[in-house]
Design a protein around this nucleic acid. Structure first.
Lengths: 129, 129
DNA sequence: CGGCATCCACATGGATACTG
DNA sequence: CAGTATCCATGTGGATGCCG
């Protein structure tokens, strides 16, 4: 790929991507483009923090395995923070890092967009067709 | 923060989700949670419109098959609009619908977040570890 | 140019059971 | 409570080739 002999138009690929092999959109997408990631982050933004099963309930419909994997993934990416708050009755607490909380804008706009467009889409869809 | 008596915590699941089986975050996530969707939308936001191969180049690294599937998917979801602008030299034009353009907030915040967090993350990552 | 058809590899995630 | 361990079904996407 990257054959730029033909047009210059493609040289432009907006400033933030120019010359670099990575792209903010793609990079961010890699983080939130997993089925449960956005919801998990959203729930944590809302609750502040939560235990494993608590979060599992809040998210709704996710299996232990997947939630576990997702949290681990988000932790690696510096978005989620995991703390063991008690050993005897073993308890952990998941919360967002600052970086994770900065995703508020993105998540919020997703919520907003969803509310504005998808909700009506469901009903419109049936009447339009 | 926001520590409640853990019992009433679960009943609440924010207003916009209460009692309903769907959730704006999840719904929106279903639309942008495919590998190339965010980038495609972003490129269209930036370029206004583009032909198939043009878009393919701008996106970068996507195969015809996947781009085709993605566009079809986004079209079904009312985010992307496809117009045949010429039959003889066969040409189409992809652009965003209004609904698609409304995703600007989301995509922009993703870009911003990516620039702020991921870029530095790459270099920090190495110095921190 | 703008795709679709195929094949195939691997990622993702659901169900279920079990553990410290 | 907070996960792991399996197994398996499906999703997702890359490579390649062909077609109108």
């Amino acid at each position: 790929m990257t054959e730029q002999t033909e047009s210059e138009k493609h040289e432009k690929i907006p400033a933030w991507c120019a010359g670099e092999s990575w792209c903010p959109v793609t990079a961010t997408a890699n983080i939130i483009s997993k089925k449960w990631h956005p919801v998990i982050i959203h729930r944590l933004l809302d609750a502040g923090s939560a235990g494993f099963n608590e979060l599992k309930k809040d998210v709704g419909g996710v299996s232990s395995k997947v939630l576990s994997e997702s949290l681990e993934d988000l932790e690696e990416k510096g978005v989620v923070k995991r703390e063991v708050i008690s050993e005897k009755p073993f308890r952990v607490k998941y919360s967002l890092t600052e970086r994770g909380e900065d995703l508020d804008d993105t998540i919020s706009s997703m919520v907003e967009w969803g509310r504005d467009n998808l909700k009506e889409a469901e009903s419109e869809e049936k009447s339009i067709i």
